[in-house]
Deep mutational scan, measured.
Amino acid sequence: MASQGTKRSYEQMETDGERQNATEIRASVGKMIDGIGRFYIQMCTELKLSDYEGRLIQNSLTIERMVLSAFDERRNKYLEEHPSAGKDPKKTGGPIYKRVDRKWMRELVLYDKEEIRRIWRQANNGDDATAGLTHMMIWHSNLNDTTYQRTRALVRTGMDPRMCSLMQGSTLPRRSGAAGAAVKGVGTMVMELIRMIKRGINDRNFWRGENGRKTRSAYERMCNILKGKFQTAAQRAMMDQVRESRNPGNAEIEDLIFLARSALILRGSVAHKSCLPACVYGPAVASGYDFEKEGYSLVGIDPFKLLQNSQVYSLIRPNENPAHKSQLVWMACNSAAFEDLRVLSFIRGTKVSPRGKLSTRGVQIASNENMDAMESSTLELRSRYWAIRTRSGGNTNQQRASAGQISVQPAFSVQRNLPFDKPTIMAAFTGNTEGRTSDMRAEIIRMMEGAKPEEMSFQGRGVFELSDERAANPIVPSFDMSNEGSYFFGDNAEEYDN
């Protein structure tokens, strides 16, 4: 993207840094990872977990959730003011799984939030270390993106479920800051804005008074975040219109849905970061690795190297396929839920299948599930090659597409044709070009129609051997075009429920 120079890199967003050079960025990201790792080690000690239990991804998720809940100030305040039966607002906890007599047992633990905050700050040299908290939120978000298709949420806001490739980060909490905003897809931002506008339509006082002023500035800020994701002048001009509207209503909703559809071809720039579970960072720190000293990046080879040398386990339900569970977590670790499966298959070195073909449910185990038949197995999170994460949407291309997802959002900077089903997408653009945004709409449609099938995206960008740390010898991959490109292809993934 041309304006790259004016933006802070995501590592800076990730670490609240002012302008830093590459070495400083690597050190501050490393410091953040160190903090998460030290916190995780301490929690495993508190909970008396064995090494194996500490490497269980379900335990990692519970521990991450506990610290996120302990620092969720708004919710904590709300819980104190609106006490609900049987919930102690000062405590947080969740299921911890232990191996007892050759069987997995679930144990519900409860801790004072104050105590968890103390352990977290102690692991982070006394700081609140917001960057580390956001990092864990993005890992949870990436896992949700890989596990669930947001059909219901899309339909509720009037969008087409086939636009799911635009929904990265749709389950990120509001408090995820600049680093969170960077990884949100165009569809996620559109959905947040539509929800806001709908509230304004239904509630006369939404934009009024002292609160209304705050609401208005939040609305304009979200519009600017979305505008910054678009790469064409016409899309940005249309966002200006939406932002400046005196009284946002149905016309703005129409414009936003139009823009979301246009992003299936004229893709937005959305950041991709490899955020790993805390149970990967903990053992690495415990083994003596100093992330701050060595430096770390979320968008280069580092996460690949770390996963190459990590042992992570997962509980497996009786009829689940461990290899499929591994694929789910591998995609989440690489922030690749909406990437082209052919690119992923090449990088991973084994075939990556669409969601609907995987015999696996989510990673988390519900409290009512029976533990008797639970097994555990090693997650295979290694890769054959590594590639640089991208934040450009890439230019655009036609490809055989599917009944489910009709476009992709690249996660890796790797040369390819970008699949999208042009006739299906263009069919949504018939007729409606009147109104105050008509010239911009016409211009956007013209650009979409001009998108050429034979153009290559990320020209000359390749993948790298894991021994090639400096990215000196790019390998331009070859793809098996007979395979499906979309992950949520004609899909039956479970729906995400809060």
Score class of each variant (00 low, 15 high):
420 F>D: 02
3 S>I: 00
459 Q>I: 05
249 G>W: 08
275 C>K: 10
25 I>W: 06
338 F>D: 13
487 Y>W: 09
375 E>V: 03
313 Y>T: 14
172 L>K: 10
192 E>C: 04
302 D>A: 02
490 G>V: 09
130 T>W: 07
105 M>G: 00
8 R>V: 08
143 L>H: 04
3 S>Q: 12
17 G>Q: 02
408 V>E: 15
498 N>Q: 06
119 I>Y: 10
380 E>T: 06
243 R>T: 00
142 N>F: 08
88 D>W: 08
189 M>T: 03
351 K>G: 04
335 S>R: 01
1 M>S: 10
447 M>C: 09
256 L>A: 03
267 R>W: 12
115 E>L: 08
365 I>D: 12
378 T>F: 07
45 T>V: 00
358 L>G: 05
424 T>M: 02
240 D>T: 01
376 S>Q: 08
341 L>H: 08
362 G>K: 11
287 S>L: 10
15 T>D: 07
31 K>P: 06
129 A>R: 12
51 D>L: 00
71 F>V: 05
216 R>D: 07
64 E>P: 00
350 T>M: 01
113 K>R: 05
111 Y>K: 05
51 D>N: 00
395 N>F: 06
147 T>F: 10
74 R>K: 15
320 E>G: 13
382 R>K: 05
370 N>F: 01
350 T>V: 02
307 L>M: 05
84 S>F: 01
353 S>P: 04
409 Q>H: 12
308 Q>R: 14
472 A>K: 09
281 Y>Q: 09
115 E>R: 03
234 A>S: 05
470 R>A: 00
23 T>L: 00
70 A>G: 02
378 T>I: 05
312 V>D: 10
177 G>I: 08
201 I>N: 06
306 L>R: 03
369 E>S: 04
433 T>F: 14
211 N>L: 15
218 A>I: 13
98 K>F: 07
86 G>F: 02
233 A>P: 15
347 I>Y: 09
345 S>V: 12
492 N>W: 12
318 P>W: 15
474 P>Y: 09
28 S>H: 00
128 D>V: 06
436 R>Q: 10
278 A>F: 07
218 A>N: 09
368 N>G: 00
266 L>N: 10
206 F>M: 14
311 Q>S: 01
323 A>P: 01
123 A>G: 01
66 M>G: 06
78 Y>P: 12
493 A>I: 13
252 E>I: 11
340 D>Q: 04
404 G>K: 04
456 M>A: 14
399 Q>T: 00
329 V>W: 10
159 M>S: 12
485 G>N: 15
331 M>P: 01
314 S>G: 13
85 A>R: 00
198 K>N: 02
334 N>L: 15
406 I>G: 12
42 Q>M: 05
146 T>N: 03
267 R>G: 15
372 D>C: 15
58 Q>W: 07
383 S>Y: 10
284 A>L: 01
424 T>H: 00
374 M>H: 07
63 I>M: 02
179 A>Q: 10
477 P>N: 11
357 K>D: 08
336 A>E: 07
83 P>E: 02
463 V>Q: 09
479 F>R: 00
50 S>M: 01
200 G>C: 06
348 R>Y: 14
193 L>Y: 13
259 L>N: 09
334 N>T: 05
30 G>I: 07
412 F>G: 15
419 P>I: 01
428 A>V: 05
224 N>C: 13
150 R>Q: 10
360 T>Q: 07
170 S>Q: 07
250 N>K: 06
122 Q>P: 07
225 I>P: 09
199 R>M: 10
48 K>Y: 07
139 W>F: 10
162 R>M: 03
305 K>I: 15
60 S>V: 07
220 E>I: 03
272 H>P: 14
446 R>T: 01
498 N>E: 15
145 D>L: 10
121 R>Q: 02
146 T>M: 12
20 Q>C: 07
486 S>H: 10
370 N>T: 09
259 L>V: 13
245 S>D: 13
220 E>Y: 11
209 G>V: 06
468 D>I: 06
95 P>G: 01
399 Q>N: 08
434 E>A: 04
379 L>S: 08
457 S>N: 01
478 S>L: 01
286 A>S: 05
390 T>L: 07
205 N>Y: 01
149 Q>L: 13
208 R>D: 10
206 F>G: 12
222 M>Q: 09
146 T>F: 12
419 P>A: 01
356 G>N: 05
148 Y>D: 06
307 L>W: 08
139 W>M: 08
157 T>Y: 02
479 F>T: 14
209 G>D: 14
450 G>S: 04
82 H>M: 04
280 V>Q: 12
7 K>T: 03
109 V>Y: 07
459 Q>F: 01
83 P>K: 00
4 Q>C: 00
244 E>M: 10
32 M>F: 07
252 E>D: 05
316 I>G: 15
204 R>K: 08
444 I>W: 07
336 A>T: 09
163 M>Q: 03
21 N>L: 02
450 G>D: 00
389 R>H: 11
360 T>R: 10
405 Q>T: 05
281 Y>R: 13
399 Q>K: 15
354 P>Q: 05
159 M>R: 12
431 G>L: 00
231 Q>L: 12
354 P>H: 05
280 V>S: 12
293 K>P: 13
210 E>I: 05
266 L>Q: 10
190 V>C: 12
345 S>A: 15
276 L>T: 12
99 R>M: 06
60 S>N: 07
426 M>Y: 13
33 I>N: 13
115 E>F: 08
247 N>R: 03
440 M>I: 06
494 E>W: 11
242 V>Q: 07
160 D>I: 00
249 G>D: 10
